[in-house]
């Protein structure tokens, strides 16, 4: 019995050395066990923190860590090689990244086209079997070049080709041009990705040109006469290339309308309005006809009721000229009235 009591006493003494695992908190902590994070939302004790700052914070931290450890111990444990192991759940807290998100690479012209059309890249084998040479030949590299040289020791002249043309030189030239084109496209892709404006270089090779380039070529070519294209005729719906002022002789750059004081702008606008409103109307036959019809109709409506009084009124107004008074509502015709001589007779004097 003594032994048992002794052991109990010893364990009690040992336990006194450690602080208790139960911590009392006013408000429960917020845990994110996945990222081993506990947030204490309780207020700090203002008195204690003034009195003994370090001890207070040390104790507080210990308590909070004890609570976090308690939480971890509630998870299912395993034993691996004499060690107790816990699998943490996924973290709830999102940590901000220190560096900015990397920008997406801009697609090259081919890549964007392939994406639009749904073309996927397929992995080719690096070597293929050549039946003629009975050999594995790589896709590229010096071995491929050597194999090609061995294979193409003779080239058939196509039926429609010039028999004296050097087919080997032609093939070499074609290869050089393909490489140059590829280089041009590579640089164009870089310029596009970095948003650099490539200066127009005039007229490009017709094999390479797109429709815009051709329009540029036409515009430039047209202005390349002695009279800077002044007398060149153009097709009915032909369009001029834009943005070619610096490579076209005699072309003026379009400028923005300058900023002017409001008074001036208004007077300019009013002048334009005046010119619009005072435009001499063209003789519009249909318009004239409709006007005439309208007048005639009005007359037809009015005639039966107001024929006599109108005639009488007019007669009075005119001051008693019985011959000049019109019979109906019609226009007076020439040669029916009395000629009013204005004093001198004879030649018309101006």
């Amino acid at each position: 019995m003594d032994v048992v009591a002794e052991i109990l006493e010893r364990t009690a003494k040992d336990a006194e050395k450690f602080k208790p695992i139960h911590v009392k908190k006013h408000l429960e902590l917020e845990y994110d066990v996945g990222s081993l994070l506990a947030v204490d939302i309780n207020d700090l004790d203002a008195k204690l923190i003034n009195k003994e700052k370090n001890d207070y914070i040390k104790n507080l931290t210990r308590d909070n860590i004890q609570l976090l450890i308690n939480q971890i111990w509630q998870l299912p444990t395993e034993r691996v090689d004499d060690a107790v192991v816990v699998k943490l759940p996924n973290a709830k807290t999102l940590l901000p990244r220190s560096l900015p998100v990397p920008k997406e690479k801009t697609l090259t012209k081919w890549e964007s086209f392939a994406k639009e059309k749904g073309i996927r890249k397929s992995n080719k084998a690096k070597v293929h079997w050549d039946e003629e040479l009975k050999e594995w030949i790589p896709e590229y590299g010096y071995k491929r070049a050597a194999a090609e040289r061995e294979k193409d020791w003779v080239i058939e002249v196509p039926g429609n080709a010039d028999p004296y043309e050097d087919q080997f030189a032609k093939k070499k030239q074609a290869k050089v041009e393909r490489v140059a084109k590829n280089e041009f496209q590579r640089l164009r892709n870089i310029a596009k990705a970095k948003n650099i404006k490539i200066p127009k270089m005039g007229v490009v090779n017709p094999d390479m040109a797109n429709s815009k380039d051709l329009v540029t070529a036409i515009t430039v070519a047209k202005s390349s006469t002695a009279s800077v294209g002044k007398f060149q005729s153009s097709l009915p719906k032909e369009k001029e290339a834009r943005g070619v002022a610096d490579i076209t002789p005699g072309a003026k750059r379009k400028r923005k309308m300058p900023v002017v004081p409001s008074m001036q702008e208004r007077s300019e606008n009013l002048a334009i309005i005046d010119s619009v409103l005072n435009k001499k109307p063209k003789l519009d036959v249909t318009k004239a006809l409709s006007k005439h019809l309208y007048k005639e109709q009005e007359m037809l409506h009015e005639e039966p009721s107001s024929k006599k009084p109108r005639a009488g009124k007019r007669g009075k107004k005119k001051g008693g000229n019985p011959v000049a008074a019109p019979k109906g509502g019609k226009k007076p015709k020439s040669g029916k009235g009395v000629h009013k001589a204005s004093g001198n007779v004879g030649r018309k004097r101006r």
């Binding site: 923005k256 309308m257 606008n269 334009i272 010119s275 619009v276 409103l277």
Partner: peptide, 25 residues
Amino acid sequence: MKRLSEQRNKILFEKLAKYVGPNVK
């Protein structure tokens, strides 16, 4: 926001004059 060119101003006023006549002023 930029000013209208003279040509465009004319086109605009012509259209407006069709509806409001001399009241464009």
